[in-house]
Design a binder for these strands. Sequence first.
DNA 1: ATAATCGTCAACCATTTGGTTGAATATGCG
DNA 2: CGCATATTCAACCAAATGGTTGACGATTAT
Lengths: 113, 113
Amino acid sequence: MGTHSLDLTFAALADPTRRAILSMLLEDDMAVTDVAEPFDMSLAAISKHLGILAAAGLIAQEKRGRVKWCKLEPDALRAASVWMQSFGQFEAVNLDAFEAFLAHELAADPDAD
Amino acid sequence: MGTHSLDLTFAALADPTRRAILSMLLEDDMAVTDVAEPFDMSLAAISKHLGILAAAGLIAQEKRGRVKWCKLEPDALRAASVWMQSFGQFEAVNLDAFEAFLAHELAADPDAD
DNA sequence: ATAATCGTCAACCATTTGGTTGAATATGCG
DNA sequence: CGCATATTCAACCAAATGGTTGACGATTAT
């Protein structure tokens, strides 16, 4: 998982409008115009935000007819999540061992934290 | 856990220099000058990066004598992780437990990486 | 006391970011 | 065809970002 894609992912997540868009897309796939509707902002601005989310791999966009549908694409979020879990030391650790450790932790004390 | 602090957290994480600093601090607390040493960048620039990390709550800085020590402060990362969990697709992670695990990994296999 | 070290501050610069507007490009509808 | 709808493009703008350098205050060492 490259440094560059983490740059894009975190930068994309740093904007509240974009996080709100992701939350909206969690409920359903949406057309660009419908994504833009609740925001006090031009359609072009929302289109740019969607482009940034797509470039980061956080959403996918598919054009059907004249409508461009936007859907959540969780892989990039997952990658960022993994980085946060490992603090960038991901390559230094044995992931299988970590997953086993994590499973054990959660099973042993699911209410921890 | 407001929107503003998530802005700061993700924006801070979006820079590879700052993520590298966090990784360094995972191993040990460090003085500002020592944080700066491996980077091809002025001390002032690193000082700014550390200020951004501190403003985001990702690190804490404590001045002892003329040396300012930097230590990891995992709460903000935890908040960002919680936000990601709101997407429902990410396992909850006990960060403290992970740090213990990682310390053990590094102690057992210091040449990894 | 003088000098070296630690770190920040202030001013500056180039680039990026987040927004605007108006024109342009598809696509669908009557 | 002719018009409305969906979306992007291009040019522009203000503000933020990431870096530099040199001066500075505070602390420690000789």
